[in-house]
């Protein structure tokens, strides 16, 4: 594996390899000395064209725990979007001598463009409304850690599907591993044609929840809700907010997940956020382990040899 650009083009075997390697990485996080020398002398550049705290911190911690050097470049989200500026970005990365570039960009496809212009491995940390593969991998790792396997699980992803790269990556990853994925949200926030990805689509949350093994609550991206797609936050909360009553509808051992940060009282109620089945903090911890596995797999070994196979 040279880059991680999406889950759409990853084989189930490749996804499982990443998940398997995250298990021993997680052990390192529980040690007194949370550091191994594996990536000594390697440089990981995080390049974020959109604000992010947890994804960026998670990648930087993962790199540091593996003894890589990290450089963080944040670009103001307003100044550059696409076209020539991305090519300039590639030049910056080359000049920095990076081995791995972690890129977040508002334009879908930006990581692909960059990956063709740099020698470094590129990890997509979110591109527009397209994909956020490392988030989905940590979500799938968390489900697998608790449930044992993914195949046959009923996973309900609820919220703003239209704007969600997290949802799209999870759809690809979970489907490839055999989960039954349901997407639920107001009709205005369900992209047309999404059912073609082999998922069930509905706007009636209460009808979908019975039998759910996982409720994945998407963050309502308030910054994207100025286009009149929602009547009001109150109405959204009453129809699609996950509260204790709705959790009761699902399986007793349902997992409640959220990529963070939470809008408490909007997509998730306070009680549910603190529910014993909510694994939101575990997702954050697992994020570091999964990203360590990714950095290890992308940085170790002669990649040119591997792509030849």
């Amino acid at each position: 594996m040279k880059h991680l650009l999406d889950l759409q083009n990853l084989a189930p075997d490749e996804i499982n390899t990443i998940l398997d390697n995250a298990v021993p990485m997680k052990q390192i996080l529980n040690r007194e000395i949370k550091k191994v020398p594996t990536l000594r002398g390697k440089t990981v550049v995080t390049l974020f064209y959109e604000p992010s705290t947890r994804t960026k911190t998670s990648f930087e911690l993962a790199a540091k725990y593996l003894s890589a050097d990290t450089v963080s470049i944040s670009a103001p989200s307003s100044s550059v979007v696409k076209g020539e500026s991305l090519i300039d970005t590639a030049h910056t990365i080359k000049a920095a001598g990076a081995d791995v570039v972690v890129l977040r960009h508002p334009a879908a496809g930006a990581p692909y463009l960059i990956s063709r212009r740099v020698d470094a491995s590129v990890i997509n940390a979110g591109d527009g409304m397209h994909e956020h593969p490392s988030q989905a991998l940590l979500d799938i790792f968390t489900i697998k850690e608790i449930k044992g396997s993914i195949a046959g699980l009923k996973v309900v992803i609820v919220g703003d599907i239209l704007h969600s790269r997290v949802a799209r990556s999870n759809v690809w990853g979970l489907s490839k591993l055999g989960a039954e994925v349901h997407l639920v949200g107001p009709a205005t926030l369900l992209p047309p044609g999404i059912e073609n990805l082999g998922v069930q689509v509905s706007s009636d949350l209460d009808a979908v929840l019975p039998g759910a093994d996982v409720i994945y609550v998407l963050r309502l991206q308030l910054e994207r809700q100025n286009q009149g797609l929602l009547p009001s936050l109150q109405e959204y909360a009453s129809l699609y907010g996950i509260n204790s009553r709705r959790v009761e509808l699902a399986q007793d051992d349902v997992l409640i997940m959220h990529p963070g940060p939470l809008n408490r009282g909007v997509e998730i109620s306070n009680e549910v956020a603190e529910h014993p089945n909510a694994v939101i903090n575990q997702q954050v911890t697992n994020g570091v382990a999964v990203r360590m596995a990714l950095l290890y797999l992308l940085s170790v070994g002669d990649v040119s040899n591997e792509t030849a196979n």
Binding site: D20, V23, P24, Y296, V300, G301, D302
Partner: peptide
Amino acid sequence: DLTRLDYHPHIYRT
């Protein structure tokens, strides 16, 4: 020798 290998060694649990 990690950077010199042409495969990913399997990591077992410690």
